[in-house]
Design a protein around this nucleic acid. Sequence first.
RNA 1: GGAGAGAUGGCAGAGUGGUCGAAUGCGGCGGUCUUGAAAACCGUUGAUCUUCACGGGUCCGGGGGUUCGAAUCCCUCUCUCUCCGCCA
Length: 424
Amino acid sequence: MLSVQYINENKEQVVQALKVKNFEAQSIINEIVSIDQYRRDTQKNLDASKSQMNTISKEIGNLFKEGKKEDAEVAKRKTSELKDDIKALESKLREVEVHLNKLLTEVPNVPHPSVPPGKSEADNQFEREGGEPVKLNGKPLPHWELAEKYDIIDFKLGNKITGAGFPVYKGKGARMQRALINFFLDEAQKAGFNEVLPPLMVNEDSGFGTGQLPDKEGQMYHVTEDNLYLIPTAEVPVTNIFRDCIVNEADFPIKYTAYTPCFRREAGSYGKDVRGLNRLHQFDKVEIVCVEHPDRSYQLLDKMVEYVESLIQKLGLQYRVLRLCGGDLSFTSALTFDFEVYSAAQEKWLEVSSVSNFESYQANRMKLRFKPTGEKKTQIAHTLNGSALALPRILAALLENYQTPEGIKVPEVLQNYTGFDMIN
RNA sequence: GGAGAGAUGGCAGAGUGGUCGAAUGCGGCGGUCUUGAAAACCGUUGAUCUUCACGGGUCCGGGGGUUCGAAUCCCUCUCUCUCCGCCA
């Protein structure tokens, strides 16, 4: 969330900037500013009362020590009114703080100045494209038909075991998954990301820290018995490594990578987009997560984008990079680049990665700070993350774009990992 | 699942009703000494809210209570550890 201080100092800019996200912020910002003023006044009064109380208490202590019992009793009587005041102010302050916090969590992150206006994904800004256009002869098959033809992904079996959106990968299909995961992790390591293997379930505090809770609660699987949530992305457990931390400035940039399965309820999804691997409830992803100095987070974002691009290039896929418009930008993000690969058989672009700078929005929720050298006060760090990469649509594109009459070719970079060069 | 113990500053670890935000040690930072380093010695070293500042408030796992006053007493929740049981 945005800090109250920032909102106070940049009221107008915040309101204007949030218009790009199609969020009308004027009234909530006004409310926050006035409630915060009230909060500070209350705090001041409370502090003054407590200060008085502390003084009297010390006096009483001294009087008792000196044996002046009667004087002490007199002083005691004076405190009862103060006590009531303190109680009243305390409960008021708490109430105000809860309210203020709730309002703060309802304000989205401010978009970066370069974010184009727009309502939906149709308004995303084209950045660049790469990779060779795919030329397929005859009538190319979509991946769900290829999957069945070569018996590498069994959607029906997943249906039986669990339900829709939980495919079973078989034989060379399973092997492909493992190859992609290892390939992505090895590449990340080479690029300086430290590998971690985090828990797949997180508690409420973690869900709140990265912004999934409270507003996106319905998108996560909730284990109610223990009040834990299945992670929708490794971003959640990995970023929360740094919750309530004051990190070392010298450690910047902090770069992590993690492979995890991801679980998403995808409530409200339906129709053509959910066919095959296009939208799943459980899928595998390698994520990169970074913590960086606020002055340098955008340089790092560029590097992360370059890194993701290099992965797609190595896999030989045709892709394009988009700068998300305000309407498509997530609640917590300041700037996001999406990567899409072209599926020749489906004749459409598939989103395979999303790389974002959250600036201090998550870090402020998580109390992730650092102490600038030579300064006394801590400062909120910046967090970033990106998919590098999500497997299902990459696999879909690989299957479709590399199909030949003899079978599906395996990209060269993966052959060491798969142990075969053809799915047939 | 059963029984017990515990939760204090970056770490270790004192502190059981009043000058305790907290002894001491380690670590960190600065300095003296040294050609340099080590050792030794001296100093310094938590977070957070509020205030232009001085200052004031809060924080000893979380929440509540007793008291003029709580790290210290009471209640409650959570977590950790040990033993037993079960088990990958």
